[in-house]
Design a protein around this nucleic acid. Sequence first.
DNA 1: TGATAAGCGAGACGGTACGTCTTGTCTTGGA
DNA 2: TCCAAGACAAGACGTACCGTCTCGCTTATCA
Lengths: 196, 196, 196, 196
Amino acid sequence: MSIDAPTRGRPRSPQADRAIFDATRRLLDEVGYQRLTIEGVAAEAGVAKTTIYRRYPHKAHLVLAEMSQAAHDTPATPPDTGSFRDDLLAVAHQVRDEICPSAPSSVSAALLTEAIADPELAERVRAFADVRFDQGRPLYDRALERGELRPDADWRVVSEMLVGWIFHASVASRREPDDATLAHAVELLVDGVAAR
Amino acid sequence: MSIDAPTRGRPRSPQADRAIFDATRRLLDEVGYQRLTIEGVAAEAGVAKTTIYRRYPHKAHLVLAEMSQAAHDTPATPPDTGSFRDDLLAVAHQVRDEICPSAPSSVSAALLTEAIADPELAERVRAFADVRFDQGRPLYDRALERGELRPDADWRVVSEMLVGWIFHASVASRREPDDATLAHAVELLVDGVAAR
Amino acid sequence: MSIDAPTRGRPRSPQADRAIFDATRRLLDEVGYQRLTIEGVAAEAGVAKTTIYRRYPHKAHLVLAEMSQAAHDTPATPPDTGSFRDDLLAVAHQVRDEICPSAPSSVSAALLTEAIADPELAERVRAFADVRFDQGRPLYDRALERGELRPDADWRVVSEMLVGWIFHASVASRREPDDATLAHAVELLVDGVAAR
Amino acid sequence: MSIDAPTRGRPRSPQADRAIFDATRRLLDEVGYQRLTIEGVAAEAGVAKTTIYRRYPHKAHLVLAEMSQAAHDTPATPPDTGSFRDDLLAVAHQVRDEICPSAPSSVSAALLTEAIADPELAERVRAFADVRFDQGRPLYDRALERGELRPDADWRVVSEMLVGWIFHASVASRREPDDATLAHAVELLVDGVAAR
DNA sequence: TGATAAGCGAGACGGTACGTCTTGTCTTGGA
DNA sequence: TCCAAGACAAGACGTACCGTCTCGCTTATCA
């Protein structure tokens, strides 16, 4: 990507890198984002605080880096059922099951919140989100080819609407939506809410 | 609701109540949620820390109470343009302008984030959201009467989809959606994304 | 003693008086002077804090009052062995066993300490000490009659020297003095430390 | 004494050490032990609270450390008048003038009081007292050589009796003993209270 | 084959806020 | 006027993390 500066001095330890990521993941699962502390990660990873601060300026950057790494290691493959409606429904299920499964895992919300006050972080979060959303793009392309999707529809808006709804419904309104509600939402999204 | 226990001991000072709320609002506007501090609120309100802790166990509860109070004092009136589509668009504008205006005001996001890890707070947030959503209900009732809305559509899901999208788009994806994007989103929502 | 002021309003409850004293004694035995709190006494006595503050301005006064009451209820009788030396030794044993038996009981030291900064308390403590010392006076009078005591010796100094030494030895130097050391101290006191 | 563990991490700042001691001394002189506050010391020393708590678990330990340091910096030299009796009298004057000079300085009493409930502190206090008493030992050795002192007399008991008496008389009984009373006490101690 | 430069562990440092505790005062309603 | 109950202002407590800073040591590249 960038030409590495001519690397003087001792290079950063890849073991430390891994240990930090692993500890971050473990603690994220255990106590959630809010109660995750750099100090705790350092202890869990058997690493000095400095070693973490040298890599990431803040907790949020650390966590985001870990998530990016994880996303890179296990890329999500969008469903391909042959039907746009069913594809969307499958995505809805995926998102719900990824976002909701117990409290701590909702790291994303926390990151988004922090991003509000930290423009640089916001930029990285946006980049991360872009990657995620782009992974879903083929789904819309296929739908378009099959003539199931309005050509003028902004696929990004559609994605965000689905994901944003699940987020909002889970947290602000009731518990996580059940299968019937998911289906209803997809139907509204596909067919519109207007009377025919 | 419940008959208040026959009020033993000195009653809580309404002046303190007000002072706390006012200080909270002022600081929220000034420094935002993250950097809001119980200690700071106490100082700003000219009140002892204990007086706040006696009322609210955590920062989040305090802030939510303030928001509830504010919402109660100035209830939002849903738009009534005579057209469902235009009503929705007006709501979208309202929500965007309320949510987005720069960093500090994104208190909601922070509250939602905290609610993830605090079930009791989550319950209160949910109650607050219910009130807000219910205020918008007449809009859907009118649309139904006019025959503009599918009778089987869950109005709550529709609301959440719109609000959730604006949230998500603002924070996770790009900056706040512009007017054209809002209009596009409303159109997708009303007419559906399927090709006709 | 004093003519009671013409008693307007509701008289103070003697039950409360007793409950306060009892609770004070219990807590003193349990947690010691330092960790005794007015709040704790009120709770333990089933009495409002105000009820205590109406009677005693400070913790120290409360405790001193309790001690005076206790001393009044069970006056100490000085030993009378027929020998000055043995009387002193008996007193030494009494004092050691009263002062030392486990940490919390050393309330006296704490009171003395507080008295340094509170002249009124100091006066009361002094009065209390005077009563205690006076209770020992007959011992010296008898010794004087028997011709065992130097006529010019200030009995108060002698008492204080014995008690002060036990205090000091217990706390500042080693553990509480054993019987042999007590006997040695009494001997030094009686016969002097000078070579004959 | 023990070989210090090979100094891992950043060493403690000697400047902080000094600043803490100096501030402690200043505040002790100003407001006395009871109203001395760790927070206050930190502020006065220009040091973080944690820096103090890292060194001393409690106020009492801090104060004792300061006293030890002070005692170490300016060791007391026992008087040497050539006469045991006059030496003792000189010591008595020293002790009275050191202990009594108005409220704040009676730190010792406070420390002793706290030591009752804190075994570790008690141990340190004892060590400190040992040093102080040992400094007075030559006085007794000289008296012994000159044949002024009973060979079987425990010099430590003698010291404690004198110091303990001054303590007790100052605090519990009346104000600080005047010169005549000091002389009388020394005389009793040296010659004994028994009639000849 | 050193010199130089960074990385690393450890842990102290100045800060800030936390949430708790206790103090002594006050304000209720009821006795 | 007292009492129980409990709110109140004040302020210290001891703790937890923050992000920065020395230390002594290790591991690289460059001269």
